[in-house]
């Protein structure tokens, strides 16, 4: 069965201690689409993010990346299949420079073998040079090239978020997952992030953006999926979502 979707989430459920965090969720993201997932606090956004990224396994249902089932794979296998993840929390490598952090993102794409690396064979040196160039380009794109040789843990929060994004891009993902990327950012940083996300979509990258800030996603996303109490309650373009009474109800706390 081929759906043609870049990401296909079908009937996915996940409960914690008998309480469903996500219940029978369906989501289909077309190649090159920028999809936002929004919802009030406790709607199951972070759980859904973890189910796609691999931090969580579903109790039921399936997750497919380009028609390949990934829902039972551990996170590192999903990364190798092309799922790039940017967490809200700064999951960086302290003790390494910013450039080294981003180069580590290319781990999923390295091919030169152990012996080639150990003996510094030409194939390995060429690959390393290529990764260094690619990492530098990712740093430039995310606007943190001035921090390249500083220890990553010294970066301010906004730059650590950018560093995670650069690291994910260095792994040449097919699907980019962003968990509340705008949270905690200042207005100027937020604008810069919005521009970058639009650029990446322009490159044809498929992006899934989980975000609490509705205004931020409404102007960026091709389509918006709304979660409430673990269920998908609406799915459509920004204009359709704005006009949807169930969404308004979920956000205002009135009965839908």
């Amino acid at each position: 069965m081929t759906s043609g979707a870049a990401l296909e989430v079908s009937g996915v459920s996940r409960a914690f201690g008998g309480v469903f965090a996500v219940r029978d969720a369906n989501l289909s993201v077309a190649p090159g689409e920028l999809r936002a997932v929004i919802g009030p606090n406790g709607a199951g956004k972070s759980t859904l993010f973890g189910l796609i990224g691999g931090q969580l396994a579903p109790d039921a249902g399936s997750v497919r990346l380009d028609d390949v089932r990934i829902d039972r794979l551990p996170p590192h296998r999903r990364a190798r299949l092309g799922v790039g993840v940017v967490f809200q929390a700064a999951r960086i490598f302290p003790g390494m420079t910013t450039l080294e952090n981003v180069m580590a993102g290319a781990h999923a794409t390295t091919h030169a073998g152990f012996l080639a690396a150990a003996f510094r064979l030409p194939s390995h040196r060429r690959e390393e040079r290529e990764i260094r160039d690619r990492a530098a380009e990712c740093l430039r794109r995310t606007g943190i090239e001035d921090w390249a040789h500083r220890p990553a843990e010294e970066l301010p929060l906004g730059q650590q978020r950018a560093l995670q994004l650069a690291r994910a891009l260095c792994g040449r993902p097919r699907l980019l997952l962003l968990d509340e990327p705008a949270s905690g950012l200042r207005t100027a940083e937020r604008e810069r992030l919005a521009t970058l996300v639009e650029d990446l979509r322009g490159d044809g990258l498929t992006i899934l953006l989980v975000e609490h800030d509705v205004a931020f996603v409404m102007r960026l996303a091709d389509r918006v999926t709304v979660l409430d109490l673990g269920r998908v309650i609406a799915d459509g373009t920004a204009a359709e979502i704005r006009a949807d009474s169930r969404v308004v109800g979920a956000y205002l706390g009135t009965a839908a």
Binding site: H76, F93, G171
Partner: peptide, 27 residues
């Protein structure tokens, strides 16, 4: 080994932050 090989660097990455290591595709 730890400074120059891919395996050594992957080991160092796990040492630095195992959660981040998983995200970049390290087992």
């Amino acid at each position: 080994f730890f400074a120059r090989t891919d395996v050594g660097k992957a080991l160092s990455a796990c040492a630095s932050n195992p959660y981040a290591a998983l995200v970049v595709g390290i087992d």
